[in-house]
Design a protein around this nucleic acid. Structure first.
Lengths: 112, 112
DNA sequence: CAGACATAGTACGACAGTCGTAGTACGACA
DNA sequence: TGTCGTACTACGACTGTCGTACTATGTCTG
C-alpha cells in the first residue's frame, strides 16, 4: 500500500475539514473518522494536525466553535463542535477551484 | 488568476524536477524555465526552493551533480548540471503511483 | 557606451504546518 | 479491574518553502 505523504495533502487538510463541515457542524473525533471513511481508509489525519487546524481555522474566521452535550438529554461530557462560517464556505470554494488547476499542473509532470 | 499555494505543490517539486531530469541532465535555470513552460505559466518555482531541492536531492541520492561549460567550445562560465540516478528514477515512479492515489483522495473532498 | 535585462547562481534566517510523544479523563464492557 | 473507544490538550522538533539580498557575467538597445 502506497503511503500518502503529508507534504502532498498539506494545504488540503483544511479543505477536507471544511468539506465535512459544509454539511453540518461536527467535532474532532467524528471529523477524523469521516475523513478516514470518505478516503476509503487511504488517509488518516493525525490528531495533532487536526486539532491544530481547528485553532488556525478559528483564528482565520473559517470556522466557529461551540460546546454541546454528547446526547440531546444533556447527559455525558460536553464536546467542542465546529461550524463553518461564510468566510469558510468562500475559502472552500476557492480551494476547489485551485485544486482543479493544481491537479492539471501536477499531472503534466506525472507519467503513468 | 488563481494562485497555486505552495503547500499544495510541496512534496511535488522534487517530482517535477525529476520529471525533467528523466529526459536529460539539466541545470537550475533551465529546469526552472521548463517547469514554467510545461505548466503553461501556472507555476513558477522559486529560486531558493529549487536550489535547496538540489541540495536535498543530492544528499538523498536521487540526483548527481557535475560541472560543464556553457558551450561545447569551452567558452563561458561553468554551470552545475544535475543527472538523475537509478534511485531517483525509482523515487519518481513511486511518486507517480502516490499521485494517482492522492488525487483520488483529495477529489472526494472537492465539489465542482 | 551606459544601463537594463537575462543568465546562473549562493547565503541566511524566518515561518508555517505537520508529526512524535505523552498525558488527561470519562464511559462501556468483559 | 483493566482494556478499549471516545475526546481531546500540550509541547517541542523537523522540514520544505519563502523573503531578502548579494554576486557576477553576457547581451541587447537606445
Amino acid at each position: 500500500m502506497v503511503e500518502i505523504s503529508s507534504d502532498v495533502i498539506r494545504g488540503y487538510n483544511d479543505t477536507m475539514i471544511l468539506y465535512i463541515l459544509m454539511k453540518e457542524p461536527s467535532y474532532g473525533y467524528e471529523i477524523s473518522k469521516q475523513i478516514r471513511t470518505i478516503s476509503d481508509d487511504k488517509y488518516v489525519i493525525k490528531e495533532t494536525t487536526l486539532y491544530s487546524a481547528f485553532t488556525r481555522m478559528e483564528k482565520n474566521g473559517h470556522i466557529e466553535s461551540f460546546t454541546a452535550d454528547q446526547d440531546p438529554n444533556g447527559n455525558g461530557k460536553k464536546r467542542t463542535y465546529y461550524r463553518i462560517t461564510e468566510a469558510g464556505k468562500q475559502y472552500y470554494r476557492e480551494k476547489c477551484e485551485e485544486w482543479d488547476i493544481t491537479k492539471d499542473v501536477v499531472e503534466k509532470f506525472i507519467e503513468h
